[in-house]
Simulated assay, not measured.
Amino acid sequence: MQALQFSRTGDLAALQLVELPDPVPAAGEVLIQVKAAGLNPSDVKNVLGRFPYTTLPRVPGRDFAGVVVQGPAELVGREVWGTGKEPGFFRDGSHASLLTLPATGVALKPQSLSFAQAASLGVPYTTAWDALQRSQVGEGTRVLVIGAGAVGLAALNLAQVRGAQVLVAVRRAEQAEALRRQGFQALVLQAPEALGEQVQAVFAGGAEVIFDTTGFWLPAAVAGLAQFGRIAIIAAPLDGQVQLPALALYRKGGSVVGVNSLLYDSAACARMLEQVGRYFDEGRLPLPQGVVQAPLSEGLARYAEVNSGACDKVVLVP
């Protein structure tokens, strides 16, 4: 089979297009013909060596959509999608023609999504699902999402499905205007010390949940937090350090929720995606737009593109 593979880390040039033997599924596993595979920032960081537990050589790639060609009879021929902590890190991933996973680690692909659309959603939607679930977002919850990348947009859409009151904060005025056209309340981020006042102007008493998808607004977010509020984070500065105003946080009874999609195996992610998929097929979630498809042979160039921040909706097609 054709695959992208790296045998060392630290440089994207380590990624090569290679021919590998077709994988053989073990008992209780499925063999998937990959129709499309999402390219996430975590895949790029994996090749760059940010995940020391990755075993080498390794085929990267977490998200996928495809067709089961071997496995339990009830799954053979079915269109499936998925993600998880194993592919790309502890076993070969989805940036290949074929992929093996436990049969419990795949969900049936929503009929409303193309293979490319489904492959672009795994990490963003499972991450957003986990953040909202563990931050107790429900009907009427006042939610601020900082950043509108793939995870931020997934969180906005899922929060609306849950009946939350949703506000999004972005850096650029044109981003805010585009989000308003999609029906969201949006504000433009100013100086960090102004964030609390900006949030309070929309949500009297502050936001009950703040989801910082950028890694840079945790200290500033405390001022915009409601009593007993929760701040969910998925990223941090490169050195991992922030100056947290602990006094202001505990005076509000606030808490910080760390959200890490790599805590969930493919089976746990499949259960999340089953519900997300129902929402898509029921028309409660908007279909993804602007997904960029590229052949596997352009893998190195596309990895560099995602690393530069030029695009966050890239799907590789074997």
Rank of each mutant, 00 (worst) to 15 (best):
A169F: 05
Q198K: 08
A235D: 15
E193W: 09
Q165N: 12
A236P: 08
I231K: 07
G196F: 06
A220D: 03
L179N: 01
R162G: 08
D212N: 07
P192K: 07
G163D: 11
P192R: 05
Q165S: 11
F216C: 12
I233S: 08
L218S: 02
A220C: 10
R172A: 14
Q185M: 14
V143I: 11
I210C: 04
A155C: 11
V188Y: 06
G183F: 08
E208D: 04
L195D: 04
V222Q: 01
Q182N: 12
P192C: 08
F184G: 04
G206D: 02
E139P: 15
G229Y: 04
T213N: 06
A201Q: 13
A148Q: 03
P192D: 07
Q165Y: 06
A164S: 09
I210S: 05
A150T: 10
R142E: 15
L158H: 01
A235S: 14
G206A: 01
A154Q: 02
T141K: 06
L238W: 14
R181M: 12
A223H: 10
Q175I: 06
A204M: 07
A220I: 09
T141L: 11
V143H: 01
G138E: 13
L153W: 08
T213Q: 03
V168H: 00
N157M: 14
R171N: 11
A220T: 01
G196D: 08
L144E: 06
Q175D: 15
A201R: 11
R162L: 15
V143G: 04
P237T: 03
A154R: 03
V151K: 01
A173D: 15
W217G: 04
A226G: 12
R181I: 05
F184W: 14
I210D: 02
A220P: 04
G163C: 10
L195G: 02
I210F: 00
L189C: 04
I210G: 03
A204K: 00
L187T: 05
A232V: 00
I146M: 06
A235N: 12
V166H: 05
F203G: 03
G224F: 03
E177D: 14
V143T: 09
I210H: 03
A221Y: 02
V199K: 03
L187C: 10
F203H: 00
R162H: 11
R171T: 12
